[in-house]
């Protein structure tokens, strides 16, 4: 049989990567994925989906199941999650989509797909142990409101980073 020309009209099974799902599901956090029955409760309750319809938890869950590795991991939207946990709270099948998303983000980061802002922030956390840094301007402003100076100490977080090896992952971040 002659091969039909396919210019993106349909997905060919051969293009899919069946190992992707099992790779994701190897993580304890993603074990519930197979239970998903595509009811869309997660999507309906997702505040990000409302603004960026392209980010769709129900669709992502299906894309992972089908094995659409590249599309999922390179999607910029998986980084838009606000971590509100709505999807997880209301899911009738206890799929924990939020946790699956974390697994996906980790996989994407290792591949170097993490967006720049995210990489920069990670670098800063690794360096300082702090999500936000402070400077004299901020203190000045606080003093004008009669608020005390902040003593921010990131050393414990830095210790955790060392112990868990998160900084090693950084080495693989190309961004």
């Amino acid at each position: 049989m002659e091969k039909e020309e396919n210019n993106g009209e349909y997905i060919e099974l051969a293009e899919l990567d069946p190992d992707f799902k099992s790779e994701v599901m190897k993580h304890e956090d993603a074990k519930g994925l197979n239970a998903c029955f595509a009811c869309g409760t997660c999507t309906a309750g997702c505040p990000i989906h409302e603004i960026f319809p392209e980010y769709d938890p129900r669709k992502l869950a299906k894309m992972v199941k089908l094995g659409m590795r590249e599309e999922v991991l390179t999607s910029p939207y998986i980084w838009y999650c606000t971590t509100c946990h709505n999807c997880e709270q209301h899911c009738p099948q206890n799929v924990k989509f939020f946790n699956i998303l974390n697994v996906l983000k980790n996989m994407a980061a290792k591949k170097g797909y993490a967006p720049n802002a995210w990489v920069e922030q990670t670098k800063q956390i690794i360096k300082t142990g702090l999500v936000f840094t402070t400077d004299e301007a901020l203190f000045k402003k606080r003093r004008s409101f009669s608020l005390p100076d902040l003593k921010l100490d990131g050393s414990k977080v830095k210790k955790i980073i060392k112990l868990t090896g998160i900084d090693k992952i950084k080495a693989q971040i190309k961004g």
Binding site: G40, T43, G45, H49, E50, D56
Partner: peptide, 12 residues
């Protein structure tokens, strides 16, 4: 009021 994503059109 409630929101649902209609999968047939992919919109909320």
């Amino acid at each position: 009021s409630l929101k649902v994503e209609d999968p047939e059109i992919g919109r909320l």
